[in-house]
Design a protein around this nucleic acid. Structure first.
Lengths: 346, 346
DNA sequence: TTGTAGGCGTTATCAC
DNA sequence: GTGATAACGCCTACAA
């Protein structure tokens, strides 16, 4: 603990009451300019630092927000956090950051602790293995404001900031169908319990259906959100007889696409000639791959800013109804889908 | 704010005193098992959440650590934060994360706020434009424990966890000299006020001196820690007459090396044939570049864990003297230095 | 085993 | 313009 100097100490030194010192330091009108100056100087010379803990206890307001992300190493999330910070910093909030590491148990524990620390609100992107939506409902019912981002839990009264996942997934799948004429398209999905997992899968299915393509369950397999798990899932896919191999793979996100690519390479096949691959995120690594990755660009910074703004509004106005905010994506056509290199690809 | 249920409320419901309820919930020995059970059940049914704010006010302990990083987008830092969290999480601390965005003013403000929030300690990697070391001294003198990591302020009584910057920088520079025979080697430095800026520059100079190479001030230029600023600095270097161009560039970190590479490309030159480039960090992008980047691998996760462990120890034992902890690096030889591609380069 | 008093540092409220 | 009092929710210390 730091600075033990309190209002009382300053008051005693100056022969004033703690209350007057408080008023002076908070620049209230009902203090004489003279004492105000005296107090401020004394406070400085004594090395006074206001105690927000005590202030929070009185005001029931901590100027603190809990941020829970599933994977700090996935480049999408640091970028979101940067956006969040940009907004919250301007309003004098501090951020508690927790990396749940894709474990729901860890996420739950963190959220409980954050509640005990009396955060003014929570920004959450749920972990891969969420099961228990009721947990979030309890938190919301207890009066804590939540805004979800990216991986949302919907219809439980919390706002959600995400991209148009389903439409984007459909769009990139249609690119594979319409531009390249692929008909045998596989999907490495995320867990269906997670919003983006379900939505992106539905977008993929939308595209297939609208083009009357066969939906082959052998080609739809859960690979999770991480490179390693996706690599294993892709390996399994490649154990199918050669004539049942897909021509293209739609991965649920870029780490998953990277996993798929390395499985394809390990099998002695090549991207995109043997199997094309597309992702979702636009990871920093996507444009740098040997075969640059075609993917959906998610404006992570913008998602962070929107989520933070929405949360601050909810905090100031808890009765406003929840809303779903969609930020739009853009397609990044590179070479992993089979497109030729263009001049202006970044 | 959430849960308004307090010990008093539970006490009233049960016809007990708040104190007994407190004891029961904290599992103290001097409460009968019966009332303990009654209390715990009641607390659950009433949705009680302990108020850490009040607890902290009493105990002068917040179980909270402030983490200040200069750039959340530089992949090194999220990885460090992951390491920090791994350690602090196990000891039930929460992390306040602040991204100073390389601005010292922002860093100072954040640190003051964190002090007001009464963090138990601070983990700091200083911003690019630090000037005012006395600021940190004041913080330390006020009794707040600081452990610096990566970018340290030394000799002011705070511990520091970093890599062996000087030796590593010398080593990679010597690789350029000894293996490739380069004699005209430039350095894109960081600001000399920042520890790693100075140390890496000294390592570069050490290498030149020990091989009796000319130290040419035209080839030593400050490019900052970020890609854009380094790119500009490199552009300026390339405005030298062609016969005064360096054969190789030692960049202060990987973002700087990336900036240098794009300046070299823009000038119609190639890496490494016209100018070789080496970095420092081992950014996620380093192995993926068109010409994979030779660089110094920093074990970021390990740096984070060590820094966190050191801080927790300092918190529990404030009188222990500060220490400098060095984590060792390893050279990642790839192709940007002119080495041929090997089989096992990742 | 349980309860009471007092205080952590701050602020709202009412009084002078 | 300034001060006294009580309260925020909890815990230590002492008493019963």
């Amino acid at each position: 603990m730091s600075s033990n100097v309190t209002l009382k100490h300053i008051a005693k030194e100056l022969g004033l009451s703690a209350m007057t010192v408080s008023r002076a330091l908070n620049d209230r009108s009902n203090v004489s300019e003279k004492t105000k100056k005296r107090v401020i100087e004394k406070a400085k010379s004594m090395g006074y630092t206001p105690n927000h803990v005590a202030k929070s206890l009185v005001s029931s307001k901590t100027y603190t927000i809990g941020v829970v992300i599933p994977q700090i190493t996935h480049s999408f999330f640091p970028e979101v956090v940067r956006g969040i910070e940009e907004v919250t910093n301007a309003s004098n909030y501090q951020l508690f950051l927790t990396n749940a590491n894709e474990e729901f148990s860890r996420e739950k524990e963190a959220i409980r602790t954050l509640q005990s620390k009396r955060v003014d609100g929570l920004l959450i992107s749920s972990s891969q293995d969420v099961k228990d939506y009721s947990f979030y409902e309890e938190i919301i019912n207890s009066g804590t404001v939540i805004v979800f981002f990216d991986r949302c839990i919907e219809n439980i009264g919390a706002s959600c900031v995400s991209v148009n996942d389903r439409a984007s997934s459909r769009q990139i799948t249609e690119h594979l169908i319409e531009v390249h004429g692929y008909t045998k398209i596989a999907h490495l999905s995320g867990p269906p319990e997670v919003s983006v997992g379900m939505k992106r899968k539905n977008g993929y299915l939308d595209a297939l259906r609208s083009h009357d393509l066969e939906i082959n369950n052998k080609w739809i397999t859960e690979g999770g959100f991480q490179e390693e798990s996706a690599q294993k899932a892709m390996q399994k896919l490649l154990e199918l007889p050669k004539d049942e191999h897909p021509e293209a793979v739609v991965a649920v996100n870029d780490p998953s696409a990277l996993g798929a690519i390395s499985a394809i390479k390990s099998a002695g096949l090549s991207v995109p000639d043997d199997i094309a691959v597309v992702g979702f995120t636009d990871d920093v690594r996507a444009p740098l791959l040997e075969v640059p990755l075609t993917t959906v660009h998610q404006p992570a910074y913008e998602v962070g800013k929107r989520a933070a703004r929405r949360l601050l509004r909810s905090i100031d106005n808890p009765d406003e109804p929840a809303e779903n905010i969609e930020v739009l994506t853009s397609l990044k056509i590179r070479q992993s889908c089979g497109c030729p290199p263009a001049e202006t690809n970044t």
